[in-house]
């Protein structure tokens, strides 16, 4: 058996498309992920010192926020969810010495067989995206399963057969689908919006794509006032205007 070698790439490449133009940074996806995955596939996602002074725990999805400063223009705030990208050339899989890490040929999902993981942590070192976190209670590596136990689960209503993060996102910034099918909704979205790979130079060929923030308009065309404080200065009229002028004479 040769599990930690990568499979022949299949036609089906399930993954996520994350719209950075829409994400509001509410962390609901991370919470929904933790909730589903702590009671689903594999060991629970443990917390250490959850009510103490130094709480931390295992999460499969982390939401960063960045300030992006264009030259000579106001800064933008971009919320940035970070999770496993289910790479086609997944370095986390090939480094695994035990056969615990594997990539499925049939749909491209990267998984960990936790009963085989010896907790060496090398896969987490091999991942440039920080997608893998060691569970400190169970001593095995945890990662996004693309909710493999939801997406094919016929016990769930059909609308729930998508990853918990996608299902819960209140802004619809997360989309799930087959990125191997050029006609799928997610593939069309990537084509229309110039979806891109994270750290392409790392040669991991991520399946997940990110949609860039749309260009900002209206800030640099002269229509917007330079000083917003001026807008907030209300010139009083009527009786108040007369009082205001009268008081001004006393100054």
């Amino acid at each position: 058996m040769d599990m930690t070698s990568l499979p022949q790439p299949g036609a089906k490449k399930l993954g996520l498309v994350i719209d950075l133009d829409i994400c509001v940074g509410c962390h609901a996806c991370a919470v929904a992920c933790k909730e589903w995955n702590t009671s689903a596939y594999g060991a629970p996602l443990s917390d250490q010192d959850p009510y103490g002074g130094q709480p931390e725990g295992t999460w499969l999805n982390r939401i960063h926020s960045y300030e992006v400063k264009p030259e000579g223009e106001p800064a933008q705030l971009v919320h940035f969810p970070r999770s496993c990208l289910h790479c086609e050339d997944a370095p986390c899989v090939t480094v695994c010495p035990t056969g615990a890490s594997y990539k499925r040929g049939e749909d491209g999902i990267v998984l960990v067989d936790e009963s085989m993981c010896m907790g060496c942590g090398l896969c987490a070192w091999a991942c440039p995206y920080g997608a893998r976190e060691m569970d400190m209670a169970e001593g095995v590596m945890k990662k996004c399963t693309l909710c493999v136990d939801r997406i094919y689960n016929e016990n769930l209503p059909e609308e729930d057969r998508e990853p918990a993060c996608v299902r819960t996102c209140p802004a619809k910034a997360r989309h799930f689908g087959d990125l191997g099918d050029p006609d799928s909704a997610v593939s069309r979205m990537v084509a229309e919006r110039d979806g891109y790979d994270l750290m392409p130079d790392q040669a991991t060929k991520p399946v997940n794509k990110y949609l860039p923030p749309r260009p900002k308009t209206g800030c640099d065309n002269g229509a917007a006032p330079d000083n917003l404080a001026q807008l907030a200065t209300v010139e009083p009229s009527g009786l108040l205007g007369w009082v205001d002028k009268a008081l001004a004479m006393l100054e």
Partner: peptide
């Protein structure tokens, strides 16, 4: 910039950590 793919907009710096 390369990690976030946002470099073509401008310089990227952390605003808030995820945890």
């Amino acid at each position: 910039e390369q990690a976030t793919g946002l470099g073509n907009i401008g310089a990227v710096s952390r605003f808030e950590l995820p945890h």
